[in-house]
């Protein structure tokens, strides 16, 4: 299928992009890598009046450590990030999760921020952002704000971004000394969206576990290492997520994955922590 008609603008600066968004609001659609959006356009599931292409904005193409975060510009592709030699040191969880995001060919074009903006509950990057307590930086002609992951994603394919706002960057906290990380997902085929994705961070006597693919957004739980009733904790979590049946998995299957794979992911993260 072919996309419906839309106007196309390619701003030369972030300010120009913000001006277009201010003018058109939710009739505008930002495109960066377009790896989700283009497929939706091709299926005519999206029909913006104007497409705002930010993929060439220099100002959004940088990826740098600022303070205790890796700040990833909105035009930075998943492949750019994976190519960073220091990624496994800087944000280990991203290094573990990124290879599960689509395929090499889509990572070459797809951006980190685009994946966050899309807000698919089973995708890996929103899970990582939530598990690491990262932030999304939003800007509009009205100003700039930062939202925590938990505030940013509000549900299935929906976020707190206002229509005139542009995601300019995502901020992933840098590895804290001694922290251990683990990531696992169950998908029908490699590269498919996760049926269940699990990300664990072990640090300072605490375990944080994030689960994607079940609730309408990544869900995070945290507890101290000492807790002995992990199975009970995971069982409670599995039920809390309110899993549903779909084409590829039953609710029970999803819960059993949390119960079965959860302990392994946690153990893995703890074994990497010191």
């Amino acid at each position: 299928m072919k996309p419906p008609r839309f106007d196309y603008v390619r701003p030369d600066t972030v300010e120009e992009a913000l001006a277009v968004l201010a003018d058109f609001g939710d009739e505008a659609q930002v495109i960066a890598g377009g790896q989700s959006l283009m497929a939706m356009l091709n299926l005519r599931l999206a029909g913006p009046r104007v497409l705002v292409d930010i993929s060439r904005l220099e100002a959004l193409s940088t990826c740098q450590e600022t303070g205790d975060c890796l700040e990833i510009g909105a035009a930075v592709t998943q492949a750019d990030l994976l190519d960073r030699a220091d990624l496994a040191e800087a944000v280990p969880l991203l290094a573990l999760a990124l290879p599960h995001v689509g395929h090499a060919q889509t990572r070459n074009r797809g951006t980190v921020c685009g994946s966050l903006a899309h807000g698919d509950p089973s995708s890996e990057l929103p899970l990582c952002l939530a598990a690491l307590e990262g932030q999304v930086v939003l800007r509009s002609t009205r100003g700039e704000r930062r939202l925590d992951a938990a505030q940013f994603q509000t549900g299935l394919l929906s976020t707190a971004r206002e229509a005139d706002e542009l995601i300019v960057a995502a901020r992933f906290p840098l590895r804290r000394a001694g922290a251990g990380h683990a990531f696992a997902e169950v998908a029908r085929r490699h590269g498919d969206f996760a049926i269940v994705g699990l990300a664990a961070v072990a640090h300072d006597g605490q375990v944080r576990l994030g689960v994607a693919g079940i609730a309408d957004r990544p869900e995070i739980r945290e507890w101290p290492f000492e807790r002995e009733d992990i199975d009970a904790v995971l069982n409670r979590l599995a039920w809390d997520l309110d899993a549903a049946d779909d084409l590829h998995a039953s609710a029970r299957y999803r819960r059993d994955i949390v119960r079965g794979l959860g302990p392994k992911v946690i153990a893995e993260a703890r074994s990497c922590a010191n």
Partner: peptide, 13 residues
Amino acid sequence: GRAVRGCLYLAVQ
């Protein structure tokens, strides 16, 4: 110099 999906790319891009 990057392999990408041609069907997810607009000609104008």
